[in-house]
Design a binder for these strands. Structure first.
Lengths: 192, 192
DNA sequence: TCCGTTGTCTAGCGATGCTAGGATCGAATC
DNA sequence: GATTCGATCCTAGCATCGCTAGACAACGGA
């Protein structure tokens, strides 16, 4: 029994190593640099080992995405928990969200841009993704305004943040004016 | 002289063929299916011919992006030109923008998601891209509100639309609620 | 001590973007 | 009209990609 448990532990540990290495490599050199060969070399195993843990590269991206979604949810909650006032919380949320996207571009891509083979907007959506949306909803639902469904409002606000994040990082928007953009967005969208 | 001119015409014609074929293939089967081999086969030339027109696949994507940007600008102007009232124009703009993204997903990706090797937010940004932004600015600048820079407002509104477009198409948002999302966005962001 | 399972690696497949080098064709010159 | 010469295009190939088959070794249980 104990032998099996040890092997399971080692296997789980190796899986964490794969995900962490993929993430680090992606963050450092971009997802294009995350090839199965390079990844295998970094973890000091051969390529086929990766396929004993994941179906393919997509699933590895998906694993990074889930890990990142949990961190994003935590970051948002941490940023809003210490702030008084609904409107101020929303501002803090927006800044925390954009800050996360800026500091973890590869992870952000894994969550929202790349195909990690994850389901969205269904009941079989992985828990971390639903929880990340829930974290947004907690603060944004307060400022949806009368007669506006909190979920709908959260979707719209989230989409705006997502647009700012991706367009900025893709070089479509200059990062200098990030602050006034957030200010404008919160001023107009948040009621109360 | 006439011989050279004919050759130039034929060359330009072939270049258009390459771009049109790449676009059609991308729209039909996704950008992943647009390989240099398949593209070469479709235009009935060998692969190296592509490289006598473009530096590589990136530049082909860029060419599709420029063509698409011009069409997007035209679509936005067409949708807004026949509408009375600033607010109504903005609603029409938003719907036209999202409609374009939905009906030309591959082209939209080429413009805003993929790396087409294009410069943005600089003075050396290609004209069609600057003009597409200008087309948005024409209608959005009217509803920026007092003391708000029209360019900044346009950026924020555009980012919101971009977020809705990409999240919807990536399966992150359900398409059913598209209409109320737009309504909410226009209601809150547009002043006047 | 032997067997069988489990785990890992080497080697290779088809496909990718891109390029070198030779063949071919047509226009200009004698 | 024959001949050169440059432009144009294609065949063939390189390195790399994601992924997999099959050989091999290591180790627990009989």
């Amino acid at each position: 029994m104990s032998v099996q448990e040890r092997k399971q532990r080692e296997r789980a540990e190796r899986e964490r190593l794969i995900v962490a290495t993929a993430r680090e490599l992606a963050e450092r050199q971009g997802w294009d640099a995350v090839t199965t060969r390079r990844l295998a070399e970094r973890i000091e195993y051969s390529q086929p080992v990766l396929y004993s843990h994941f179906r393919g590269k997509r699933e590895i991206i998906g694993a990074v995405a889930l890990e990142g979604a949990a961190e994003l949810a935590a970051a948002v909650r941490a940023a809003t928990s210490t702030v008084d006032g609904p409107r101020e919380r929303v501002t803090a949320l927006a800044l925390a969200y954009l800050d996360f996207a800026e500091r973890n571009p590869a992870v952000y891509d894994a969550i929202f841009q790349l195909d990690g083979g994850l389901a969205f907007a269904h009941e079989d959506t992985p828990e971390p993704l639903k929880d990340a949306f829930a974290a947004l909803l907690e603060s944004l639902g307060e400022v949806a305004g009368d007669g506006v469904h909190p979920g709908l409002f959260t979707e719209v606000f989230w989409a705006s943040l997502h647009g700012l994040a991706t367009l900025t990082r893709a070089g479509r928007l200059l990062p200098e004016d990030a602050a006034p953009r957030v200010e404008l967005l919160v001023d107009r969208l948040a009621m109360a």
